[in-house]
């Protein structure tokens, strides 16, 4: 699979006139850039800026390029940037399968089949009709990743996605996520506090602050 690279060109973010961070880098398809630094330094606001929902208190400049395409003026839903949050955030009112179906564009053919395959790929066949609240932590994390992939993103942002998992699960899910994103050739940015996350990503690390 061949993807495109994600370029962050002279990005600067400030909050109420206070300079927070500056990033200038390029992430190749399948590679992961890890961003570390103390709380309040603006790591999450960097992700919000790239994804397209930076709060109006912040001001930011710099270009975000996906391949040759500039994302700056696009609304969040047209950027093709997927995001995993700290929590799996499965929509509580939808079944597991509906959660996945929500992410499949209506222009894709055999949508239901795609959902079934996505469940099967992570060993959750037959879980489609389940209430997400009845899933274990690890299962929820897997469904959240499958949902992200079904939306066919061109780049992925990870906002400390492993920090709420139990220690024994963390390693397993971490492996699974990085492997999957590498296979899908997606450029990825990981924001984390955890040095083990950074090590597992196998990519460059920048430390802010």
């Amino acid at each position: 699979m061949s993807g495109v690279s994600l370029t962050l060109k002279d990005i600067q973010i400030s909050l109420h006139g206070r300079h927070l961070l500056q990033v200038n880098t390029r992430i190749e398809p399948g590679a992961t850039l890890t961003v570390m630094g103390p709380s309040g330094i603006g790591k999450s606001s960097l992700l919000a800026y790239i994804a397209g929902f930076l709060a109006s208190d912040f001001s930011a400049s710099g270009e975000i390029l996906l391949g040759e395409r500039c994302l700056n003026s696009l609304p969040a839903e047209q950027r093709g940037v997927g995001l995993l949050f700290q929590d799996p955030l499965l929509f509580p009112h939808l079944s597991v399968a509906q959660n996945l179906l929500f992410a499949v564009s209506r222009h894709v053919s055999h949508r239901q089949q795609q959902v079934d395959q996505a469940l099967e790929a992570v060993g959750l066949q037959g879980f489609g009709d389940r209430d997400p609240a009845t899933l274990s932590g690890g299962q929820k994390a897997r469904v959240a990743l499958q949902r992200l992939l079904l939306s066919q993103p061109k780049a992925v942002l990870l906002d400390e996605p492993f920090s709420r998992l139990d220690a024994h699960l963390r390693q397993e899910i971490r492996q699974h996520v990085f492997q999957t994103l590498r296979d899908a050739a997606l450029p990825t940015i990981l924001v984390t506090h955890d040095v083990e996350d950074a090590a597992a990503s196998g990519g460059p690390v920048i430390t802010l602050g």
Binding site: A48, A51, G52, F53, P75, A76, E77, Q78, R79, G80, V81, G82, L83, F85, D87, L89, F91, P92, H93, F102, A103, S105, R147, L148, S151, Q152, P153, L157
Partner: peptide, 27 residues
């Protein structure tokens, strides 16, 4: 607000997000 952001990163327009996510969650 993360529900709305999440839906946007999955490619849903604000209107689709309102009908499928916010309306049912705020029932």
């Amino acid at each position: 607000p993360r529900w709305q952001q999440l839906a946007a990163t999955l490619g849903a327009s604000p209107n689709r997000t309102w009908w499928h996510i916010k309306l049912p969650m705020l029932l």
